[in-house]
Design a protein around this nucleic acid. Structure first.
Lengths: 243, 243
DNA sequence: ACAAAAGATCGTCAATTGACGACATATGCA
DNA sequence: TGCATATGTCGTCAATTGACGATCTTTTGT
């Protein structure tokens, strides 16, 4: 937001909307349309719109303009409304696809595979999780949704993440042979110390532009090691405090 | 963003701009002005504007309208431009005041007070830090700035936080009597495991609306305990890997 | 070949929004 | 008292933006 952007020079819509017609507006439909866009079948065009909308929302927030999305697709703005009744419908579908969609059911299986050390399972899981979910695009989208659409984000958090936290906590407890006699909320907070630390690592990398120096593998290892190293002590302390 | 908001019913500017004049626009200046706002000295009005702007930016993002800010102050929109040449100038000053301002120099002193156990120092520090800095308002503002104004946020992170991370890491290393023969970036990542975990706790509380069940004091204790419990092992492992 | 369906565009409307010129009124001070 | 100055408002402009009626063009089925 440098000074006021000069009128007509949009920061987002720089792809130059499809020819504003050289002749002012003399002829109405002077024989031929600008008809440039290649004709695509319904489903395909719809995918393309969702894809471009996702990118633009991730870059500029949910306020990214419908005109910019159309320009990115190489189509007229009006055409968007043949696929989505309102911008809000488009926004919601982007949320379902790009936020909730990428979650992998396989993660739960791999995390529960007790034939491998839990340390390795956690490192592998978070390496994958960072690449697939905690990417720059996903994170920016998620934060924009959380900040601007308070009613959508919680859905995602509560259901899937909770299950993930419980899986992690119980797998670690099993390998360390400690019992977890604490209320569910406490179990969640315990697992959040690892999950939150790694999530924040992704946030500072992708959102704040920091933590670029130490390789990701080392960082993941450090976080997992810290978690496993402190886990038993915390559980014992919790049981002592509860007694 | 439910459906399309009806025209004229702004989600943000609901304070009804100071009387749109009952009579359509018949009389131009019909003898008396609407002159409602109490007259304030320059500096005082300026403070008020910054305060209201901060609140609105935190709630709705940096796109909150100048008209809404003016309405919140009970003044005309035009008056804002007597204090800030452009909206962008207002935004930047809000950043300096509300983001960078609240940082306490005292934190560094208290963290370095070796007459107290480092566990207590860390718990006290993060309790205060959560209340003062990682509040809902500060966090939302910081995230909006990070997402929408990529050039401002890094300033804050790099200078102050780095110093904080180093202080914490070295104080813990001193008490645990371990040497820290590792590159600065690694020291930072090490301290980030605690600082990031707590920051993320604040984010999920204030931004995602989660983690409301376990009392803050317990959570802080858990994070600090986890950090101290895993610290030594990680440092040793790092030294082994480097050898 | 030809009409209906599907894909795509033009032009425009009304609300929003940052900015500002012109004008009004209260306050302080000589 | 009287005017210069500081504080404040009105009205409006131009660019932006979601939405949509009216039309045009290509494809498809018979």
């Amino acid at each position: 937001m440098h000074r006021r952007k000069k009128w007509g020079e949009s920061a987002i819509l720089d792809t130059k909307a499809p020819a504003a017609s050289s002749a002012k507006k003399a002829r109405k439909y002077g024989g031929k349309y600008g008809g440039k866009a290649v004709r695509l079948p319904f489903a395909e065009r719809r995918e393309q719109i969702l894809e471009e909308a996702t990118s633009l929302f991730a870059q500029h927030g949910l306020t990214a303009q419908t005109r910019a999305i159309a320009a990115a697709c190489g189509i007229s703005q009006r055409l968007l409304y043949r696929f989505f009744p309102t911008k809000d419908d488009l926004v919601r579908e982007v949320y379902d696809r790009a936020i909730v969609g990428p979650f992998r059911a396989r993660w739960f299986l791999d995390l529960s595979d007790r034939s491998r050390p839990v340390h390795d399972r956690l490192c592998d899981f978070y390496t994958d999780y960072l690449d697939v979910l905690l990417s720059r695009r996903w994170l920016r989208l998620f934060l924009f949704f959380s900040l601007e659409e308070a009613d959508l984000a919680p859905t995602y958090i509560s259901s899937v993440i909770t299950k993930l936290l419980e899986t992690i906590a119980y797998e670690v407890a099993h390998e360390l042979k400690v019992s977890m006699d604490m209320p569910p909320a406490a179990v969640h907070e315990l697992a959040w110390t690892l999950h939150g630390a790694i999530s924040h690592y992704a946030i500072r990398r992708h959102i704040y532009g920091a933590s670029q120096h130490v390789p990701q593998g080392i960082v993941v290892n450090m976080h997992v090691g810290m978690f496993l190293g402190g886990f038993e002590g915390i559980v014992r302390e919790f049981e002592k405090a509860a007694a």
